[in-house]
Nucleic acid binder design. Structure first.
Lengths: 344, 344
DNA sequence: TTCTGGCACTCTATTCACTAGAGTGACAAA
DNA sequence: TTTGTCACTCTAGTGAATAGAGTGCCAGAA
């Protein structure tokens, strides 16, 4: 639909209505707007305007004698054309900075902390997804003998990520063979992305030497080594914030959402998909979400870079969320993450 | 209090009452017991018995004309003397077995999956804590050069656990120095527990050679390396199960609990504490819990062994929980974990 | 002495009617 | 075009009435 022909007044009223509703969570009446905002027009005029907005599908009434609440389309219009950039306050910046200050401790720890700080500052759900390892370039692969029959495979990536996979091997494999295998793997695989490795592992290691039993463990492209390594890590925090929201007073709704959050892989691909084309902040409102369970929620998400790969972070909450603030939060956090993880 | 003098009948009635209440979540009346269980006594007799049980503090009435519900003391007595061992059904065994089948993928992945399967099978919260690393014996320490200025420290423990810590070092440190340092660290530290290392790191590395700048990073006993490595990993799953429970219909209660769950370190030490003296299954009922926020919950927990160290797993839910089933679940899961992780 | 049936009593949860209040839509006047 | 006004609608809350569950106790049976 085209909403370009909205009058100044209609825009103002919609904007006030949404701001007010975001704070109060109650349907907003014409009187409330007339009193709280000095628009210089009477409640009757606002009433008429609201009627127009309703006809355009930007607001709706829960019942005849109630105030109005924004529809998904209303939020969409608000976000697209009425939202003005908001500077993040210093306290919030500081909180994020101190969380994402250095890579010490590893990438996963930072992401875990970041999801927590996002939840804290937004009062919503904070979500972070680890960088996509498929695009990540392997810088070293190391085999460490742990105990009889157990070998630790360490994959170190340029982006600073690391994954360890425990391998159960034939007890007979010794020190020297491991070192030899390690040398071989590095020679053949270092410098490639994990995706490339998975796609061509058979060809690349085909004619090589080394212990054949050990080799076989690495050869299967569906092997645990390559699969587990590529698995995305998801961090979700702030469940307690969401419980408080009046839109989740209904336990069934809350349950639906929680169920969705526990379906990790689905959630990961959902968020990733939003950023397949292009980067920047993406706001997905209510019914725009692909997954039924979160169609009463909005998602504010962004990608960050870690070397030559990217990850996703975001905030999830009811459609009635303070978009301006959340956008600046997510944007700032993504930028800081990129800075630290890309060592820029 | 001493409850040994309970008559056979009183025990039976209490047992029936609790079983019934666990299933229904509603106060249980004398008629309900008389009808559902063939005890061969009338509801009036049961009424009298229940009055006695109430005087002893084992059951209570929410209000004058309601049925009875068990008190914490009631559950305690039930669990201590009336609970009979229950065999876990084959389907549940299978579900656990297939989760905890091999160490492939690493210990943390298993623990994550285990918390999930515990939640699933119990319809409560499933909790797992990684093995205590302080007691774990370091089998190898490896330094891997990632990119300029970044070194990955890999700690491999006998128990099959591994931790990686990213170190930011002076860019000038090279290949050879790393290898030398690596050799040094293994020589001095391998075979010691992480706790020992932390306690005596200064003495052990004092007069050693190697690059002094690099060395300094390892010397501080409060260094990120030793601290992060020792940090316990906590996995909590099944929030959605808890939401459904009628005892959490009150949002504030639910919120309190969620808050507690997000205070990870507190939760970890709470659970660990229960198992400080002795192992086996420990059931902690309602007010027996140290943390106020979970005093309307019970915890069924057990320790598992991983090499020469131990970790904790458990189930958390409202005091009205099917203790018999949960005990067998936790017991079985702990045993299987120990089997796989101790390679026994 | 112990158990049981019966009965009066208590308390809760539900229903229904009623009311106050918020908000609208529409109209006539400014 | 805007505004004040008023009749109308719908909800949320209140209070009374009621049904139902469950108890405590007593008198009689076993």
């Amino acid at each position: 639909m085209a909403y370009e022909n909205l009058s100044e007044r209609e825009k103002k009223v919609l904007s006030c209505l949404i701001s007010y509703y975001i704070a109060s969570a109650d349907p907003v009446g014409s009187r409330a707007i007339a009193n709280k905002f000095r628009l210089g027009i009477s409640s009757a005029t606002i009433r008429n305007t609201m009627q127009d907005l309703e006809e355009m599908g930007l607001v709706q009434q829960p019942h005849t004698s109630a105030g109005r609440i924004p529809t998904d389309a209303g939020y969409r219009f608000f976000v697209d054309t009425l939202l003005r950039q908001e500077q993040l306050n210093e306290a919030d910046k500081l909180a994020i900075d101190s969380t994402i200050s250095s890579m010490a401790g590893g990438v996963e720890a930072i992401l875990d902390q970041t999801s927590r700080v996002l939840a804290e500052l937004s009062n919503q759900l904070g979500v972070t997804i680890s960088p996509r390892l498929d695009d990540s370039i392997l810088s070293r692969i190391e085999l460490i003998h742990m105990t009889e029959g157990k070998v630790l495979v360490v994959l170190a990536f340029r982006s600073g990520l690391a994954r360890t996979i425990l391998l159960e091997v034939d007890a007979a494999i010794g020190w020297v063979e491991l070192a030899e295998m390690s040398r071989l793997l590095n020679e053949k695989l270092a410098g490639l992305s994990l995706g490339q490795i998975r796609a061509s592992i058979i060809e690349r290691l085909h004619v090589s030497g080394g212990n054949p039993r050990l080799l076989r463990l690495f050869l299967d492209r569906e092997s645990d080594i390559w699969n587990n390594a590529a698995a995305d890590q998801l961090h979700v925090e702030g469940t307690r914030n969401i419980i408080e929201q009046p839109e989740f007073a209904d336990r069934r709704k809350l349950r639906e959402l929680m169920k969705m959050l526990e379906r990790r892989t689905d959630l990961v691909s959902l968020l990733r998909n939003y950023h397949e084309s292009g980067s920047g902040i993406i706001i997905t409102i209510g019914g725009e979400n692909r997954a039924r369970e979160i169609q009463s929620c909005s998602v504010v998400s962004a990608t960050y870079t870690a070397g030559n790969t990217t990850g996703t972070i975001g905030i999830i909450g009811p459609t009635r969320m303070p978009y301006a603030k959340l956008v600046s939060l997510v944007k700032y956090a993504a930028r800081q993450l990129s800075k630290v993880l890309s060592g820029e």
